[in-house]
């Protein structure tokens, strides 16, 4: 389904065809949920945020600018809402992460262990760096698309992503993610 298809669906929703909004949910709920889940690391909280994001998108749909891509707009709303959520949860975050890490260390699966290490390293990144890494590697967005989502210049995207990568590798080396250590 292309960007044009998204625009057609949006126009249909604005004309009162609610089923078209259902199609947009079908298309984007999975990536949005996984983006949010990888930021908040909590299934129930991620689901709550996803619902709020789509409700907000529906409410603001008449202000959508068709010059932009729908998913950029959707991801931006999702990221901003999740960042706001994380700010409110900040006081509880450290304790939660520690508990999760304790639990995850019990697994013996090598692949799963590496996965856990990757997520643990991501959690150690600044929120904006984490978002950039997720958008780039989880969702495969181009610099231009990330620029559109984050509302920052493309060269700024490149500069920040460079720092985010360096930091991520540094953390992964520290956590013995690589075999060469």
């Amino acid at each position: 389904m292309s960007i044009q298809d998204d625009n057609i669906l949006i126009n249909e929703v604005l004309k009162g065809k609610i089923s078209s909004f259902g199609l947009l949910i079908d298309k984007y709920q999975k990536p949005v949920y996984n983006l949010i889940f990888n930021m908040v690391e909590d299934e129930d909280q991620a689901k709550d945020i996803v619902q709020d994001v789509f409700i907000k998108v529906y409410e603001k749909l008449e202000s959508f600018n068709f010059k932009h891509k729908f998913f950029s707009w959707l991801y931006r709303i999702a990221i901003n809402d999740t960042i706001n959520f994380l700010k409110n949860r900040k006081n509880f975050e450290t304790l939660t992460e520690q508990n999760e890490i304790q639990e995850e260390k019990t697994t013996n699966d090598h692949k799963e262990e590496q996965r856990r290490q990757l997520h643990a390293a991501l959690r150690e990144l600044r929120t904006d760096h984490r978002v950039l890494i997720l958008l780039k590697y989880f969702f495969g967005l181009s610099y231009e698309e990330i620029s559109d989502v984050m509302k920052i210049q493309e060269k700024m995207v490149k500069a920040r992503l460079f720092m985010a990568r360096e930091k991520l590798r540094e953390v992964l080396i520290k956590n013995k993610f690589f075999e060469h250590d």
């Binding site: 949910i25 949920y33 299934e43």
Partner: peptide
Amino acid sequence: FREVDLKQQIL
């Protein structure tokens, strides 16, 4: 990616 179906709740 984790599967999720929140369509009905949202609608």
